[in-house]
Computed example of a mutant assay.
Amino acid sequence: MMTQIVFYVFAAVLVLSATMVVSARNPVHSVLFLILAFFNAAGLFLIAGAEFLAMTLVIVYVGAVAVLFLFVVMMLDVNFTHMREGVQRYAPIGGVVGGVLLVELLMAFMHWRSATNIGQIAHLVPSSPTRTNTAALGDVIYTHYIFLFQACALVLLVAMIGAIVLTLRERPTGRRQNIDRQHDRMPAGSLEMLQVPLGAGVDAQGGFLRPHESYDIAAVPGTYGTEAWREAEAREADGTALVIATPATGTKGEGNE
């Protein structure tokens, strides 16, 4: 009786929190309700005797995925008002897709049948009253399905590398150096020794100094901080940069004196 009461409490809170995830206006609140839903789902797994899935849900999804969502939502300056402008326009399409998924779920549950010979099915790992689910899953994954498990890891690695490559952007403020020329530099061309009077400090001498060409010697031409970059910035600030404008054709009043 107590188990049923706990089950219904966890299930009710899970359904309510899942509803609030998609209906909350504040995205931070949505992520917090998502974390609550994960915790209640882990409680349901514990009641069902699947402690490995419960701990995985808490450690992986709550401790990593949901917290990552929360950090991204809180740190990025996302204009959610602009993102919601097209909700009413695409609401009918979303309703149709949701209706199709609901019908599929109802059909699947209506035709759900349990196998009559479930006790006669041969198990890969012999069952034992003293053996936990975690140990049994470890034996299955790392013995019978080790190659498939490693293949899944490789697929995730390729997906991670692809995401990094696709989202990598060239930053104009990055300082790139020519490694060979950097190694060929001598201390005399990189450092400037100063005789600072006692008690005067470095600020009195104009701050930390270095030869003007110390960075330009080893830097890739045109990158941030080089002389060519400074000249281009100065020309752009003075308005002397060359701008090629193509005259418009067929405008109103063309050819009028």
Rank of each mutant, 00 (worst) to 15 (best):
V67G: 00
G49T: 04
V165K: 02
E213I: 06
R25T: 07
G189S: 13
A234N: 06
A108W: 03
T19V: 05
I47Y: 03
L44E: 03
H123L: 15
F38R: 04
I5S: 08
Q195D: 15
F71P: 00
A11R: 04
L36S: 05
F33A: 14
M193K: 15
D77C: 02
E231D: 10
T116V: 03
M74C: 09
M20R: 14
A42R: 07
K252E: 09
R210Q: 14
T130G: 07
S30H: 01
L124T: 11
Q150T: 05
A50S: 10
L168R: 06
G206W: 00
Y90D: 12
V78E: 05
L34F: 14
L194S: 06
L32V: 13
V67L: 06
V72K: 07
H82W: 09
E257D: 11
I118Q: 03
A54K: 02
V155P: 01
N117H: 12
A48E: 10
A188W: 14
V65Y: 07
I161M: 12
H111G: 04
P92V: 06
P92G: 05
G98N: 12
H144D: 10
R25M: 07
Y224H: 09
I179Q: 08
G99L: 13
S30A: 15
A37G: 13
E192R: 13
L105E: 06
V72L: 14
Q150I: 12
G255Q: 12
L46Q: 09
A42I: 08
M20Y: 12
V72W: 00
V97T: 08
A188V: 11
V72Y: 07
V9D: 14
Q150V: 10
R181L: 12
A54Y: 01
V202W: 08
I244M: 10
P187W: 11
L157W: 02
I35T: 13
A66M: 04
H183N: 12
A18P: 00
I179T: 13
D180K: 02
V125C: 05
L154E: 08
Q205C: 03
T251Y: 08
A48K: 09
A219G: 02
F208L: 14
H212E: 11
I59G: 01
T81K: 10
E213N: 12
H111N: 10
V220P: 01
S17M: 05
I164H: 12
Y142W: 14
T130E: 15
G99W: 05
S17L: 01
G174F: 01
S214Q: 03
D139A: 13
T134W: 02
L124P: 03
L76D: 05
P211R: 11
V96H: 04
P27W: 04
L166E: 06
A11Q: 11
R175H: 07
R171G: 00
E227R: 13
E254Y: 06
A232H: 11
E192C: 05
M55A: 11
V243R: 15
P129Q: 08
L148E: 15
W112E: 05
R113P: 00
F109M: 11
L166C: 04
R210P: 01
L137A: 04
M193V: 15
F149T: 13
L101I: 13
I93W: 14
L106P: 00
F149I: 00
A200V: 09
A159H: 07
M160H: 11
F208A: 09
V243G: 05
P27D: 03
